[in-house]
């Protein structure tokens, strides 16, 4: 034990420090993007293209929009916030924590809600009828209080007059990506998830989806703000402009988001 501790002090600790310390010193820190979980399958190639064109490295954190809002309110070092709705970035603007003169966040895309199930499911092919199927034991949704897709899911179920009967069978995921994971892992029978998740190669291979009719839920308008405490305003603005540019908007359309332009 003693010898072990001595070895730890003499060899391991310096090695650990050598590993840890240079990291913050080297290179320029990445542009930090707080991104709604539905962007997880969409954003990485876009950020790679952005880096190729501008030499600005951007790193994204994916979470439910409300969670990112709490983090930014409490000083998380993000430069750009890409929400899955307008209300959470609006909240930051109202609190004076957004770097904008506009009264509202900048819309960059619209989200689409789909009903997804695995191909090997014993239940019928996804459709609105599946939602009232008595054999549907567990339906995964995202948390309606903090994930805009969860809010849309509850709105759609309420409009279909199914919410009360389905309520005991709903499992609530942290964010929309986890809702998809609950279904893909076989733990839930079906899920109301984002089209962006359903269109990923993995979920395309393992399941089928049904697009929930748009008149059943208020549009999932996704908005962005630049965070007030950013030290890289110009770079953040550049990324936002890039996201709104015609080629990138066209790319969003292919990955399950509806372009705003």
């Amino acid at each position: 034990m003693e010898a072990g501790l001595a070895l730890m002090r003499r060899r391991l600790l310096p090695a650990l420090f050598a590993l840890v310390l240079p990291a913050p010193v080297c290179a320029q820190a990445a542009l930090r993007v707080a991104a709604a979980a539905d962007l997880e399958p969409v954003l990485p190639p876009i950020l790679a293209q952005f880096e190729e064109q501008t030499r600005i490295h951007a790193a994204a954190t994916y979470q439910a929009s409300a969670m990112l809002t709490t983090q930014i309110e409490n000083g998380a070092p993000f430069d750009l916030f890409l929400s899955a709705d307008l209300s959470f970035p609006g909240r930051l603007i109202a609190a004076g924590m957004a770097d904008t003169a506009e009264p509202a966040p900048i819309p960059y895309a619209n989200g689409t809600l789909v009903l997804w199930e695995r191909k090997d499911s014993h239940l019928p092919f996804p459709s609105l009828a599946l939602l009232s199927d008595p054999n549907l034991k567990l339906l995964a949704i995202a948390n309606p209080e903090r994930a805009p897709y969860g809010r849309a899911a509850v709105a759609a179920l309420t409009k279909l007059r199914l919410y009360d009967s389905l309520k005991p069978r709903l499992v609530t995921a942290e964010n929309i990506a986890q809702a998809a994971q609950f279904v893909d892992s076989g733990n839930a029978d079906a899920g109301l998830i984002s089209l962006t998740s359903a269109l990923t190669p993995k979920l395309t291979a393992s399941g089928n989806y049904f697009v929930i009719p748009r008149d059943l839920y208020p549009p999932i308008e996704q908005g962005a703000v630049i965070v007030k405490s950013t030290k890289r305003r110009a770079a953040a603005q550049k990324l936002l402009d890039f996201l709104l540019s015609a080629p990138v908007q066209a790319e969003l359309a292919k990955s399950g988001l509806t372009p705003v332009k």
């Binding site: 439910a64 409300a66 709490t70 995964a140 209080e145 499992v171 609530t172 942290e174 609950f182």
Partner: peptide
């Protein structure tokens, strides 16, 4: 958080409630 699915009366424990309250401001 990973296993629960936040179901009141079945898997919503106090630490999850606290997390929800923080996330809901």
């Amino acid at each position: 958080l990973m296993l629960g699915g936040d179901i009141p009366g079945a898997t919503r424990t106090l630490s999850i409630v606290l997390y929800n309250q923080v996330e809901n401001f």
